[in-house]
C-alpha cells in the first residue's frame, strides 16, 4: 500500500495536478479569508472552510481523483498493479489516502491565516480545530465519490464530470430542495463549524466514505471477470 501511496503522490507532483489543486485551494482560502475575516473585521475562520467546501470542493475533487483509476486504465498501467501481489482493497485505499494528503496539505496551510489573525485577536482554537476536522471529513467523503467515479470509466474526463455531478448533487440539491435537506452533507459539516463534534455526523461521513471505497473495490474486482 505504501508503494502505491508514494507513487501516487510522486505522480501528483510530477504532473501539474498537485500544484493546481494546492494552488486553487490557496486562492480559495485566501479569497474567503480576506472576504470573511479581514474585510468583515472578524476573527472567525469558520467561513473560510464553509465557503471553500461550498464552492471549492466540487471543482477540486474531480481534478484530484479523475486519474486515479480511469487514467491507469487509459494508459494500461492498471495491468502493472492488477497483476502484482497486492490486494485490491489496499490499492483503492492507497489511492484514496494519496488524494486525501493533497487536501490535508493546504488545510495545514490555513495555520498561516490563524497566525495572521493572532496579531489582532486570537481566534477560537477549538472551533478552528473542529472546522478543520469537519472539512477533512467532508473532503474524505467527496474523494471517495471521486475514486468510485474513476473506477467506473476509462475516460478521466468522464470520471471528472461524474465526480463533479456527485459532489454538486451532494452539496447543492439538499440545500435547494427542502424535502431532501435531511440528506445534506453540508448541514452535517456545518455542525463542526460551531465547535461541535457530533459522533453521529462523524460516523455518517466515515460510513459513506467506507461504503464508496468498498463499492470501488467491488467494481474493480468485477472488472476482472467482465474484462
Amino acid at each position: 500500500m505504501g508503494a502505491v501511496i508514494k507513487k501516487e503522490l510522486r505522480n501528483y507532483f510530477l504532473s501539474p495536478i498537485g500544484y493546481i489543486v494546492i494552488g486553487i485551494f490557496l486562492i480559495a482560502f485566501s479569497s474567503f479569508f480576506y472576504l470573511t475575516t479581514i474585510y468583515e473585521s472578524s476573527a472567525d475562520l469558520t467561513y473560510l472552510f464553509y465557503y471553500t467546501a461550498l464552492y471549492g470542493l466540487m471543482f477540486i475533487t474531480p481534478l484530484l481523483t479523475m486519474w486515479t483509476f480511469a487514467g491507469e486504465r487509459k494508459t494500461g498501467t492498471d495491468q502493472l498493479i492488477l497483476t502484482a501481489p497486492v490486494g485490491m482493497l489496499g490499492v483503492v485505499i492507497a489511492k484514496f489516502i494519496a488524494a486525501l494528503i493533497l487536501i490535508i496539505i493546504p488545510v495545514i496551510f490555513t495555520l498561516m491565516y490563524f497566525g495572521i489573525l493572532c496579531f489582532f485577536e486570537v481566534p477560537n482554537i477549538p472551533i478552528y480545530l473542529t472546522s478543520m476536522l469537519g472539512f477533512i471529513l467532508l473532503s474524505m467523503t467527496y474523494i471517495s465519490f471521486g475514486v468510485l467515479a474513476s473506477s467506473l470509466t476509462e475516460s478521466p474526463i468522464i470520471a471528472g464530470i461524474l465526480t463533479f455531478a456527485f459532489v454538486f448533487a451532494a452539496t447543492w440539491i439538499p440545500l435547494l430542495v427542502e424535502s431532501l435537506s435531511g440528506l445534506s452533507l453540508m448541514d452535517k459539516f456545518t455542525s463542526f463549524l460551531y465547535g461541535q463534534i457530533d459522533i453521529a455526523n462523524v460516523i455518517l461521513f466515515l460510513s459513506v466514505t467506507i461504503l464508496c471505497i468498498l463499492i470501488t473495490m467491488i467494481v474493480m474486482q468485477r472488472r476482472k471477470s467482465i474484462k
Binding site: 508503494a3 508514494k6 507513487k7 510522486r10 505522480n11 494508459t75 498501467t77 502493472l80 498493479i81 502484482a84
Partner: peptide
C-alpha cells in the same frame, strides 16, 4: 504500459515495492 514521468530507476523500484 509505463509511468512516463518516472525515471527508469524510480519505475523499477516501484515495481520492486509492488512485488514486495
Amino acid at each position: 504500459p509505463l509511468y512516463a514521468d518516472l525515471t527508469v530507476k524510480e519505475f523499477v523500484t516501484y515495481m520492486a515495492e509492488l512485488r514486495k
